[in-house]
């Protein structure tokens, strides 16, 4: 029983003579954690860039929450509730958690301070604290500049920002790449906790073990086409693991 939040059908993307995507179908169900796999050049990134508004497909339909949509730019997609977290995380290393979460949309304080355009630092700090408090990764001091944070804590801040602004769909590009073993486990916990929050997540991941640990479904692409998909019942689902490997080979 599927309840799609996002559905792409007949997606074709051409860059000049090159066909990057050829009649691709893609479905993301509400509240699921989906892993998107495939070799380099399989079309994962192009597909994700279409979903996040960077590219407009040459042909095809995007249906979000049952309504057909067209994204003109990334801001459009973000407004529609789709946030993409790239490997660089787009954080402000020099600033604390609250500033990172409220960047560009800082609250103005009430009363006389409004006249001077003063930021409501206390309320933003409080809400930032609350936003990261419920996450699987703990941040000891949210008033520190995020450059002092570990990879997992930085992911946490980027995710908290997306959650705070009411994004329903989260796309994460290689969230476990370049992390140590312990940090990787923390980030996987973090991704699992997103499911509990009802977020719909698309993960671009190369590591099949990581996929098995967090995803409930894997979609494999190859040469710009759908290769197939597998439901994953849990980390020990050997059958699913074998199927993914088979499709990647």
């Amino acid at each position: 029983m599927s309840d799609p939040i996002l559905e792409l059908s007949g997606i074709t993307m051409q860059f000049g003579p090159v066909t990057a995507l050829d009649d691709v179908q893609f479905r993301l169900d509400r509240g699921e954690t989906l892993a998107l796999l495939g070799d380099n050049g399989a079309g994962k990134s192009t597909l994700i860039k279409i979903v996040s508004g960077y590219y407009r497909p040459t042909a095809g339909r995007i249906v979000l929450n049952g309504r057909p949509v067209t994204f003109h730019d990334p801001q459009d997609a973000r407004r529609a509730g789709i946030e993409t977290i790239y490997q660089d995380l787009a954080l402000f290393d020099n600033l604390d958690v609250a500033a990172n979460i409220f960047a560009g949309q800082e609250r103005v304080a009430p009363g006389w301070r409004r006249l001077l355009g003063f930021a409501d630092r206390r309320s933003m700090a409080r809400d930032a604290e609350a936003a990261v408090a419920g996450m699987a990764v703990t941040i000891p001091d949210t008033r520190r500049a995020v450059e002092d944070f570990s990879g997992g804590q930085r992911q946490c801040v980027a995710i908290a920002r997306a959650v705070m602004w009411g994004r329903e769909i989260l796309i994460m590009d290689e969230p476990t790449a370049a992390l140590g073993v312990r940090e990787t486990q923390r980030v996987l916990d973090l991704i699992r906790s997103l499911k509990a929050r009802g977020m719909s997540v698309i993960l671009i991941m190369h590591n099949i073990e990581h996929v098995m640990q967090v995803a409930t479904r894997a979609v494999v692409m190859r040469s710009g086409r759908n290769r197939g998909e597998v439901a994953i019942s849990g980390p020990d689902d050997a059958e699913a693991h074998a199927a993914i490997v088979r499709m990647l080979m």
């Binding site: 020099n94 500033a99 355009g117 930021a119």
Partner: peptide, 21 residues
Amino acid sequence: RNVWFRRFYFLGGSEVAAIRA
């Protein structure tokens, strides 16, 4: 303190992130 002036810190911290914000 001022919301507009504070943006200089965002700009200097990461121009890419500031644009995305």
